[in-house]
Design a protein around this nucleic acid. Structure first.
Lengths: 326, 326
DNA sequence: CTGTTAGCGCTTTCAG
DNA sequence: CTGAAAGCGCTAACAG
């Protein structure tokens, strides 16, 4: 293994000068910086992270925390988020360390160990939740973290879509492009904040367009009620669904009752890997990879981006997208 | 921060003795081991990983490598694997470090840096692929890694399901429990090894049951052919599909042509987060969390499990599971 | 602008 | 069975 002393020797300087040169310390002359870097390059020098971390008292890693219980299907695009996060981390010579557990206490232990033993100082939470032990711990420890979704505490950092706007986009597309006259808003039974916000957008556009509209909560618990509703409302010709799976589910109920009728759908998240569906099925792409990218930018804005340093959140755009259905 | 010297001082021994005691070194007497550990406990001592890693020349982390291209989108699947992996890692005081990138070369850089700079010595590959640069690099570096899926090189370590058996299970369920008379095997156009293996099982059971059977490749590229096939084969009453999404897709084609007919389905992977589907939709659960767990067990078998140390693979079971459809 | 020295927290020879 | 001392690779006072 080739160390900083090796390159110092070859460059005819001391180890500390070499170290400073490699870290662009302003006290070192341009010439020696160039020289040292050139030699380091030639010798294929790669700094040892564990040594750096030990002396710095801080790891070059970001902790990425998953929600407990994979029931949170509301965030289906984890892989894409991870990909976005990591693309930004590698630029900074950081690595991505994950905390995931089936229990809240296990998850907390995981994060505590990252902080206390791993010296990780920056975190990303792939969820947001009231009275969350992990965020409480991070706040108390004065560590910087960014939440993906709506924050639960007033001065948490977060990255999210503009969900009201997204609801507007979805509904406008449904009414104007798909020519729907009697839209329905389909959501879960959990009253997530993002669902309420998307509904706001839906309601606004529907009102302005002077169409009749309605809302329904869909889960596996209330099947009879749903089918009754569908039966009683044959005029429904399109839906905005807070996620693609729920939209598909509603479609199946609908087709069971009206096999011949078409239903236009705008869902969210582009959850289906392949073209899948008969009928006009569209989805709002919320650009998960972008969310990952912006999350990291915000996470490091204290060091790097004076211009956005004062912001506590960043917003990712969205876009209607089409499944090339059968 | 409380260090090993603090506890050594309190215990009235030297730092080296304390270190050895905490690591159960056999040269230390039972009594001092007990004493030192008790004091460490009382003082809430937690070893600093970066220091340990530096002296050990090896990080307490496992690199988990994702396939390039999120086209392999089965999201919940990966999350569950991660969860299984991490549950085993925490027991060993190891952490989970991920490598993910959109390009093969970027991914390789990521892994190289983990090895060369991070001193990570053990890896898990969440894919398997011929002529893979990452596995080549790991082999050359003589590092231990376990692949999830079928290995591409004769002496790679791997964890997988028994896919022939799984094909048998799926087909038996379709024929015996769902009373299908004319089964069809639905696969992708990629000729994955696991698809061929599942087909073997399908074929065997179909033959033994003396039923007529067929096979079809389904993708968004050959829609007309699929619908033609369905039209020409009205006797089809059930399918085994190599994944749930493809099964659903076929179902939609089928319903378009025969709106009134039922189709029984056995897919794979339990990909749908909620009950979704009208018609008899089942799925083979391949227990991704178990796969994660066994992967780690195999990864550390050189140190820990003399009894399975000679094995180069572990097999995870599977099970028919039901979507509580509408 | 550069070098010397010390030290991060832990493990490990080498002595006893 | 235990201790003293050295060192992992890097950074940061402190001098000059």
């Amino acid at each position: 293994m080739i160390t900083i002393r090796d390159i110092a020797k070859k460059a005819g300087v001391s180890a500390s000068t070499a170290s400073r040169a490699l870290n662009n310390n302003s006290r070192i002359s341009e010439t020696t910086i160039k020289k040292v870097k050139k030699i380091a390059d030639e010798m294929g020098y790669l700094p040892d992270y564990n040594a750096k971390n030990l002396t710095n008292g801080e790891a070059n890693a970001v902790g990425v925390v998953f929600p407990v219980g994979s029931e949170t299907a509301s965030n289906p695009f984890f892989i894409n988020i991870l990909s976005g996060i990591n693309s930004e981390l590698v630029k900074r010579q950081y690595s991505l360390s994950v905390a995931i557990d089936n229990t809240e206490s296990g998850l907390l232990d995981n994060v505590r160990s990252m902080v206390l033993q791993g010296k990780i100082k920056r975190f990303i939470l792939l969820y947001s939740k009231l009275n969350d032990a992990v965020s409480a711990f991070l706040r108390k420890s004065k560590l910087r973290f960014v939440v993906i979704g709506q924050p639960t505490s007033k001065d948490d950092f977060y990255v999210d879509n503009n969900n009201v706007e997204a609801g507007i986009t979805a509904t406008e597309f449904l009414l104007k492009n798909l020519h729907v006259k009697n839209p329905l808003f389909v959501e879960s039974t959990s009253n997530w904040t993002y669902e309420q916000q998307r509904y706001q957008g839906f309601k606004k556009v529907s009102n302005e367009s002077l169409v009749d509209f309605d809302k329904i909560q869909v889960s596996s618990k209330n099947i009879e009620k749903i089918e009754e509703f569908i039966f009683d409302n044959p005029q429904i010709d399109g839906i905005v669904s807070t996620d693609d799976f729920r939209g598909l589910r509603f479609l199946n109920h609908f087709k069971k009752i009206y096999p011949k009728k078409n239903l236009s759908i705008v869902g969210f998240n582009k959850s289906f890997p392949i073209a899948l569906i008969q009928s006009d099925f569209h989805s709002i792409d919320v650009f998960p990879e972008q969310m990952g990218i912006k999350t990291v930018i915000l996470l490091f804005s204290d060091r790097e981006n004076p211009e956005i340093n004062l912001k506590r959140h960043l917003i990712v755009s969205h876009q209607v997208s089409t499944y090339n259905g059968v």
